[in-house]
Amino acid sequence: MPDPTGTSLDQLAARLVVHGSRFARYASRGPGERRSVVAVRVLANLQHEGPLRIGELTARERISQPAMTSAVNRLEEDGLVLRRADLDDARACVVELTDAGRAELEDFRGRAAERARPALERLSAEDLAVLDRAADLLEQLSDPRSTGTTTA
């Protein structure tokens, strides 16, 4: 079904995914970044969703269980996450974000915003307003309660 611009919804969705991902990579890759993309995404998942099992994190990131366990182990060693017993299943544990993990994630996002700022400074006020609205819409679209899907 075409929208008023003549672009199909599938084409629009593909463009948003491709260019949104490319922009996120551009902003998040900087000299001296200590954390892997997976580590940052684990912290972000825990901030957004709350405590999760390793298996849930594995499914969200689509990586192997051993790779996720290794990433969580490193984050735990650095005091950014902690494991505790799962209240629903005593045989399992959940991974939880610590205050240090929250601070690390916010610092990372601040550095990414600094890297993106020069590109944004070149835009007109009108274009910035469009991007501000687009950011609101992307936030809404990425909320599983509004889309009926789970976040990645």
Rank of each mutant, 00 (worst) to 15 (best):
F108N: 03
M68C: 09
A39D: 03
E114R: 15
L43Y: 01
R60H: 08
A135V: 15
V37Q: 12
E56D: 07
E61I: 10
D78T: 10
D78C: 05
L123S: 04
R15N: 11
A67S: 13
G6M: 04
T69Y: 03
S124T: 15
E33K: 11
C93F: 12
V37S: 12
R22D: 12
R29F: 07
S124N: 10
E76V: 00
E49G: 05
R117P: 00
L123P: 02
L131F: 07
E126T: 07
S28F: 09
R117C: 06
Q65C: 00
L75T: 00
R111Q: 13
A59N: 07
P31M: 05
A129N: 08
D127T: 14
R15Y: 13
R35D: 12
R117F: 15
I63P: 00
E56I: 00
L141A: 14
D86E: 02
L97W: 01
A71P: 01
D88L: 07
L105A: 01
R74E: 12
E76D: 14
E139P: 00
A129R: 04
E114V: 15
L12A: 13
G50K: 05
P66G: 04
T5M: 11
A27I: 09
L43D: 00
A67P: 06
S36M: 05
E33R: 15
A113C: 06
S21Q: 09
D88K: 03
V94A: 02
V17R: 12
R22C: 05
R22H: 08
T7P: 03
D88R: 05
E56M: 07
E126A: 14
S21E: 10
F108E: 05
I63D: 00
Q47K: 12
A39E: 04
E126R: 11
A44R: 10
Q65S: 09
A100S: 12
P51L: 03
R41P: 03
R91F: 08
A27V: 08
L105M: 04
A116Q: 01
R29I: 06
G20V: 06
V18Q: 11
